[in-house]
């Protein structure tokens, strides 16, 4: 099967896709974009979170054939040419990254949250990120990072 979709602003066409493959497999193994991680392949960990037509999804739960013509944004598409996305920078500054395997998914989920809710309460942050498991940090510094990013984005007038 031939698949055409837009990934991080670039139109990509890929041949010989097996339709039962997940978007995650397509991104990682066929497009060379391993930023979305494969940690459970059943939507239980959020490590493969990407934006699909503006909606936060687990790439492992989307069939390759379903993204025909779709627009996908992955963690690889967040940073600018010189600067990190403010959410990425906040994760770094807050010490929210340890092994980092959950980080790309969490960053995409945080971007999604802050786009919808510029000033989330702690409860709102927790509910929004509950689908993203982290095994290293105990989440404290992840919450710090989200709060920091929210403040910086507000300051920068990005909302």
């Amino acid at each position: 099967m031939r698949l055409t979709c837009t990934v991080n602003g670039k139109v990509e066409t890929i041949d010989d896709v097996w339709p039962g493959e997940s978007l995650l497999y397509v991104l990682r193994e066929r497009m060379g974009l391993p930023g979305a991680k494969n940690a459970c392949e059943q939507g239980e960990c959020g490590s493969c979170s990407v934006h699909l037509d503006g909606i936060l999804v687990c790439a492992c739960l989307v069939a390759a054939g379903q993204v025909e013509g779709a627009e996908i944004k992955t963690v690889e598409g967040l940073a600018g040419a010189t600067d990190l996305h403010p959410v990425q920078q906040a994760y770094l500054d807050a010490g929210a990254v340890q092994c980092g395997f959950c980080t790309p998914g969490l960053i995409v989920a945080t971007v999604d949250l802050l786009e919808k809710n510029a000033d989330p309460s702690d409860s709102e942050i927790r509910e929004a990120l509950a689908g993203n498991l982290c095994r290293c940090t105990g989440y404290s510094k992840i919450l710090d990072a989200v709060r920091l990013a929210a403040v910086r984005l507000e300051g920068a007038g990005k909302h």
Partner: peptide, 23 residues
Amino acid sequence: ESVARPDGTLKVTGDFAYSSDLW
């Protein structure tokens, strides 16, 4: 000092290669 991780930028951009990312 609370120095930032040298691999941190790679990790937040998705460019850090885990053993499952090699090819």
